[in-house]
Amino acid sequence: MRIGIVCPYSWDVPGGVQFHVRDLAEHLLRLGHHVSVLAPAEDETPLPPYVVPAGGAVSVPYNGSVARVNLGVMSVGRVRRWVKEGDFDVLHIHEPVVPSLGLLTCWAARGPIVATFHTSNSRSRAMSAAYPILQPALEKISARIAVSEYARRTLVEHLGGDAVVIPNGVDVRFFADAEPRAEWQDQTIGFIGRIDEPRKGLPVLMRALPGILAARPGARLLVAGRGDEKEAVAGLPRHVRDRVEFLGMVSDEDKARLLRSVDLYVAPNTGGESFGIILVEAMSAGAPVLASDLDAFAQVLGGGTAGELFPNEDADALARAAAGLLADPRRRADLRERGSEHVRKFDWATVGADVLAVYETVAAGAEAVAPDDRAGLLGRLGFARD
């Protein structure tokens, strides 16, 4: 099958959607499919052979964060050329409502289009206001995927229609087989995320750290991610700062090794999460997980059976839960076992098969049915558009 995938965000800036697109593309390539990914990137950016650059990106505020997207006039020609030369059996657009390449591709494309919605935001006035502009493009979409029930709910509330829920995928074995590093072990807490993005929750964890250390003086916090390290610890007493180690940006291999090494992984995110891929990666690596009780996180953790939850933004509750887990190796071992079992449903072997089933359904429908009748067929198959 010839598959074209559109990534809305700049390829050279790490993020959950980029990782999902990369891993999906590489999974499909391993299965023998022809895959091409179109993404914002400068022409000189080193890229995998399957990625086609669509030009540089600009930063725009989006969903409580800053997204690097591309909707430039110069990109229109590149999108049209990529679509025409690709001669794809199916196009898979991620985040089609983001003002980036997905919209351009919707306008340029002919044939089956699958769209994946990643965003969870119950109060998006911008999305509701933009719907009249987006509608002509969205009507060309044959099948919709949401990465979680909360992303599906956002889609239904703001744009109408519905979607099949297929979670983000993870290469479970990659994380499970990683080698721990001795210097990252022994009463260590892990955090991975952008340091200076408040919704990732590092300030909450920093407020909790004095309480954790009061109960577990030997504990250490390992932080991986980009941002202002001095600002992150500015409010901490000197003796507490000494228990924080910043690792900077880490490779995929070192991320897996970090998650394999820590005694506890903490996800203190405060909002704007539709899934929680880092939780799945941590469980895959065998790390006990403690996360804020965001709806999406609770779903990923099986309602708290595969990891522990604490009240969102409650630093005192986080400190008590983290200290309790660090003091209880039996409970941590139980969470490792539960997490390792729970995470199997997120492996690419399962997730990839579900995505391919959607591709095959819309491709078969496009071949077998005249264009005017296509919407009715897809509706009967459960992939109806508005």
Rank of each mutant, 00 (worst) to 15 (best):
R226H: 12
S261D: 01
P180G: 10
Y9C: 12
Y150F: 14
L202S: 00
E281T: 06
T119K: 14
S274Y: 10
W348T: 01
Y9K: 11
A39C: 10
Y131R: 15
E308V: 03
V69L: 15
E253Y: 06
N312K: 14
Q185R: 15
V21D: 02
L325Y: 01
G307Q: 00
S148N: 10
R238A: 15
V52M: 13
A163P: 05
A319E: 03
T188V: 12
I141S: 02
A315R: 09
V280D: 00
R22L: 10
Q299H: 14
Q135G: 05
Y50P: 06
R199A: 05
L301V: 04
V300Y: 00
N269F: 08
A25T: 01
L222N: 11
E44D: 15
V289M: 00
G324L: 07
G111A: 02
Y359F: 09
A214F: 03
A333D: 15
R338K: 14
R207A: 12
A232D: 06
A327Q: 10
D293F: 04
E139T: 11
L247W: 07
D177K: 12
R153W: 09
V13G: 05
E149M: 09
F88K: 04
I195E: 08
G72C: 09
S292W: 03
S10F: 13
G225N: 04
K345V: 12
F310G: 08
S65N: 14
G64M: 04
V52G: 03
G324A: 07
T270W: 02
F297V: 02
T305Q: 02
C7N: 15
V358I: 04
A267Y: 09
E149K: 14
W11M: 04
A143T: 03
D354R: 15
D386E: 14
S124R: 06
L31Y: 09
W184Q: 05
A208N: 07
P180Q: 07
W82H: 08
P198S: 00
I195H: 08
R125D: 13
H20M: 01
L222Q: 11
P14Y: 02
G248H: 09
L213K: 00
P14T: 04
A333Y: 12
H27Y: 14
L101A: 02
G365P: 05
S292E: 02
G77F: 01
V6E: 01
T119C: 13
D373L: 14
D171N: 09
D373V: 08
V114Q: 01
P136N: 05
I212L: 05
H20C: 02
F19G: 13
V351I: 08
R81E: 14
M1C: 11
R110P: 08
A25G: 00
L318W: 06
F174K: 12
F88E: 07
S75C: 06
A178C: 05
A39T: 06
V362Q: 05
H94P: 08
L290C: 05
A146C: 09
G382W: 04
A291M: 06
D171K: 02
Q299V: 13
I277V: 15
A224K: 07
M74P: 06
V97R: 10
P203L: 07
A25D: 00
V17D: 14
Q135V: 10
